[in-house]
Simulated assay, not measured.
Amino acid sequence: MRINRFLAQCNIGSRRKVEEYIVSNRVSVNGKIVTDLSTQILPTDIVKFDNNIVKPSNVKLYYLLNKPSGYITSVSDDRGRHTVLDLIEQTPEHIFPVGRLDYNTEGMLIITNDGDFANQLIHPSHEINKVYQVIINTQPSIDQLKQLEEGVKIEEDFVTSPSVITNQHKLNNGTYQLDITIHEGKNRQVRKMMNAVGLNVLYLKRIKIGGLPLGNLPLGKYRKLSNSEINLLLKKEK
Rank of each mutant, 00 (worst) to 15 (best):
residue 1 M to D: 05
residue 2 R to G: 05
residue 4 N to K: 06
residue 5 R to P: 00
residue 8 A to G: 12
residue 13 G to S: 12
residue 14 S to L: 11
residue 15 R to V: 10
residue 16 R to E: 01
residue 16 R to S: 11
residue 16 R to F: 06
residue 17 K to N: 07
residue 20 E to W: 11
residue 21 Y to T: 07
residue 22 I to D: 07
residue 26 R to N: 10
residue 27 V to P: 02
residue 27 V to R: 04
residue 34 V to I: 13
residue 36 D to Y: 05
residue 41 I to M: 01
residue 43 P to T: 05
residue 51 N to G: 01
residue 53 I to P: 04
residue 59 V to S: 14
residue 59 V to G: 08
residue 61 L to C: 14
residue 62 Y to R: 12
residue 62 Y to D: 12
residue 62 Y to V: 13
residue 63 Y to G: 15
residue 63 Y to L: 15
residue 66 N to Q: 12
residue 67 K to G: 06
residue 67 K to C: 14
residue 69 S to Y: 09
residue 69 S to P: 07
residue 71 Y to V: 13
residue 73 T to P: 06
residue 76 S to W: 07
residue 78 D to G: 06
residue 78 D to L: 10
residue 79 R to L: 14
residue 82 H to Y: 14
residue 82 H to S: 14
residue 82 H to T: 07
residue 85 L to A: 11
residue 88 I to V: 15
residue 88 I to L: 13
residue 89 E to A: 15
residue 93 E to A: 15
residue 97 P to M: 14
residue 100 R to K: 14
residue 105 T to V: 06
residue 106 E to K: 12
residue 107 G to T: 09
residue 109 L to C: 09
residue 109 L to K: 11
residue 116 D to C: 05
residue 119 N to H: 13
residue 121 L to S: 03
residue 122 I to T: 12
residue 123 H to M: 04
residue 125 S to A: 12
residue 126 H to D: 00
residue 126 H to A: 03
residue 136 I to S: 01
residue 138 T to K: 08
residue 139 Q to D: 02
residue 140 P to H: 02
residue 141 S to H: 00
residue 141 S to K: 00
residue 142 I to Q: 05
residue 143 D to L: 00
residue 147 Q to R: 04
residue 149 E to D: 00
residue 150 E to V: 04
residue 153 K to V: 02
residue 156 E to T: 02
residue 161 S to L: 10
residue 165 I to N: 01
residue 167 N to V: 04
residue 169 H to P: 03
residue 171 L to N: 07
residue 171 L to W: 11
residue 171 L to E: 03
residue 172 N to C: 10
residue 173 N to L: 08
residue 173 N to E: 06
residue 177 Q to L: 14
residue 179 D to W: 09
residue 180 I to S: 02
residue 180 I to K: 01
residue 182 I to Y: 02
residue 186 K to L: 03
residue 188 R to N: 06
residue 189 Q to S: 06
residue 193 M to I: 00
residue 198 G to H: 00
residue 202 L to C: 02
residue 205 K to E: 11
residue 208 K to R: 10
residue 211 G to P: 01
residue 212 L to S: 05
residue 213 P to L: 09
residue 214 L to N: 05
residue 216 N to E: 15
residue 224 K to T: 15
residue 224 K to D: 14
residue 234 L to I: 05
residue 236 K to S: 07
residue 238 K to H: 07
residue 238 K to P: 00
